[in-house]
Simulated scan of single mutants.
Amino acid sequence: MSVRTATHAGSWYSANPSALLHQLTGWLKAAKQDPIPNSRIIVCPHAGYTYCGATMAHSYASLDMGDGPLRVVMLGPSHHVYFKDKVLLSGFKQLETPLGPLDVDTQTVNRLTKDYPHLFDLLPPEGDEAEHSLEMQMPMLRATLQLRGFCKPDGSSPPVTVVPMMVAPRFDEWDLRDVGEVLALLCTEPIHTVFIVSSDFCHWGSRFDYTAYVPDNVSLKEVLQGSKRIVNLRKEPEPAGQPISESISMLDHAAMDAVTQGVKDAYEDQDNDALAQWERYIDRTHNTVCGRDPLGAALAILPCLDAAKFAVHWLDYSQSSAVKSVRESSVSYAAGCITIEQ
């Protein structure tokens, strides 16, 4: 098989090309976000477009795509295939979307799996087509490219290739810093390379096995410092403090702050480790950020770029619903980017 089928078209998003393009370009324009110079890593959600498309569009609108050949590396988590200690790359040559195909950078895929077999391997085709975390990026990417003047039918626009990657969950023996070192090499090559980190934020509710709660800023600070354990509402009375949805927002914004501070520290002192700060936040809150390891791999790139300048911009945040009771659930969506000036 050489073409990956758009398996989620018609369910997670529209399979009608004109309706889908109208919807996605509408969100991209509504974001009112100009491309941010040197925006090389974006963080964006991967739920159904009706839930997260408006937030997702802020990330894509910020992306600096350059004006020449473009390589887009997609980093996503696995919801279907279990594996560890590896990054699995798509073995397809082309990715189908209702808006037109995306070409896989097979040369980069072959090079990574050949030169770094301890880190990179091929993703089984059935696991590739079952996964939504990467597929949900593809139509939005295609819509953004078309809006920016890429992907013209006459071939007059700069070539674009993609490298879909699925990142294994973090284990003790699995050091994402090794992956970051290899990904950083892609940044130093002549082709303009950008990274898409596919990640929803907090999955809150009993069905996600996460009902954490912080009543106020003081409590959150104590949790982040490690001096207090986070409250589990399945074992505690209904909260007397702020609404649950506000607590979720507070936890998610603390996650964003951890990324921002980690990147700031890495820029000011390359001995500081943005990945370590991110993992410390996860360890203390257990926030169910499903793309925490893809985001960790992206953060691991930064210390490997000598004399580069980094900055984080968070652009939008939303929730699928405003949770008021432990019997309810929600998923959070955040849009942001990291600029890398070399």
Rank of each mutant, 00 (worst) to 15 (best):
S332L: 01
E129G: 06
H80K: 14
A9E: 00
I196W: 02
L20P: 03
T193P: 07
E236V: 09
P45C: 07
E131R: 06
S321R: 03
L63F: 13
M250D: 07
P243R: 05
A15K: 01
L141R: 07
P139L: 11
N287G: 13
D273Y: 06
C304K: 15
E238A: 15
E341P: 01
P159C: 13
T25R: 05
I36H: 00
K309H: 09
A254F: 14
L122K: 01
E96P: 06
W278Y: 11
W27M: 09
I42M: 15
A57Q: 05
A19T: 13
V109N: 10
A31E: 10
Q23M: 14
R284A: 14
S133I: 03
I230Q: 10
T106V: 12
I42H: 07
L220W: 04
T50P: 03
T285L: 06
S206G: 13
S11C: 04
C304S: 13
Q146P: 00
T193N: 01
L299C: 12
Y82E: 08
Y210P: 04
V326Q: 12
C337F: 02
G205R: 06
H79T: 10
K264A: 13
G76M: 05
Q342W: 05
I230L: 14
P139N: 01
L251V: 15
P17T: 05
V167Y: 08
L89P: 14
L122W: 00
S78P: 05
F171I: 08
W278T: 03
Y49F: 15
L295M: 13
R284Q: 12
Q107K: 04
Y333I: 00
S62A: 15
Y51F: 14
A335D: 10
D128P: 11
S219K: 02
Y267S: 08
V81R: 01
T193W: 15
C202F: 10
V326M: 09
A311P: 13
L141S: 08
V259I: 11
I282K: 12
T144N: 13
Y116I: 03
T106N: 10
A334D: 06
H253D: 08
S245Q: 00
H79F: 07
T50D: 08
H253S: 12
V231M: 04
M140W: 04
V104L: 06
K228R: 11
V223H: 02
P77T: 12
D34H: 01
P164F: 01
S325Q: 14
Q342K: 01
S249N: 11
G127L: 14
L24A: 03
D306G: 12
G262N: 06
P125D: 02
R177P: 08
S245T: 09
Q242C: 04
I36N: 09
V323D: 07
D115Y: 12
S90D: 09
S133G: 04
L134K: 04
P117T: 06
V223M: 13
F120R: 11
Y213R: 14
F120K: 02
G155Y: 10
A9D: 08
A254R: 06
L295S: 10
V323W: 09
G226N: 02
G262K: 04
